[in-house]
């Protein structure tokens, strides 16, 4: 399919581009070329606005997906640039030199997912969590329910019954 991003393919043959809907495109690229691609998009293609930078934990594949949502304010196009990095000891190049707010995003990702961005300002400083000593909490393997049960105590007097089991207990306790 022809997209306004087709010319990216000539510059970045490794980039995979597909369309979601009018004005929203996806792009996937190996980790090493990501910063080059994002820089190209910003400086050459006019994707001036960094809307969002976030991560998705694909724990089954042992990967983190990093999503950079960029916006071209002139052409009114959004592109989701994605890359996958290994979950073990995750590190990514910083883009704070391109957008000032990226440092904040990266600081949050460092804190919530444990993804390091060497060179990003204050990246090791706690952002939201102060004095956190567990694993980064937005990772899929951090169990919020277990944490809540260990950290807080339940209010006494709460008990519930499953209708199916309760009816069995009441109406046919001995049957299979």
């Amino acid at each position: 399919m022809n997209t306004p991003l087709d010319n990216i393919r000539t510059v970045f043959p490794n980039a995979d581009v597909w369309t979601q809907r009018q004005g929203l495109y996806h792009m996937s690229i190996p980790k090493e070329q990501l910063v080059a691609l994002v820089t190209h998009l910003k400086e050459v293609e006019g994707y001036l606005h960094l809307v969002q930078l976030t991560a998705v934990d694909w724990i089954e594949k042992n990967l983190f997906q990093l999503t950079y949502i960029l916006n071209n304010p002139i052409k009114k196009i959004d592109v989701m640039v994605k890359t996958f990095i290994p979950r073990d000891n995750p590190t990514m190049e910083t883009i704070h030199h391109l957008w000032e707010q990226a440092a904040t995003y990266q600081r949050e990702l460092r804190e919530m997912f444990g993804i390091n961005f060497p060179g990003s300002p204050r990246v090791d400083k706690p952002f939201i969590l102060e004095g956190w000593d567990d694993i980064p909490p937005y990772r899929r393997d951090f169990d919020t329910k277990k944490y809540a049960e260990e950290t807080y105590f339940p209010r006494p007097g709460r008990e519930t019954n499953d209708p199916k089991e309760y009816m069995k207990k009441k109406l046919y306790p001995d049957e299979i």
Binding site: E159, T160, N161, D162, P163, K164, Y166, M167, K170, L171
Partner: peptide
Amino acid sequence: AIDMVPVEGIETKNGDSGL
């Protein structure tokens, strides 16, 4: 916030768990 609990006077029968 919701628990299903037995209530006095409401019988468990076909089609009604009594909870």
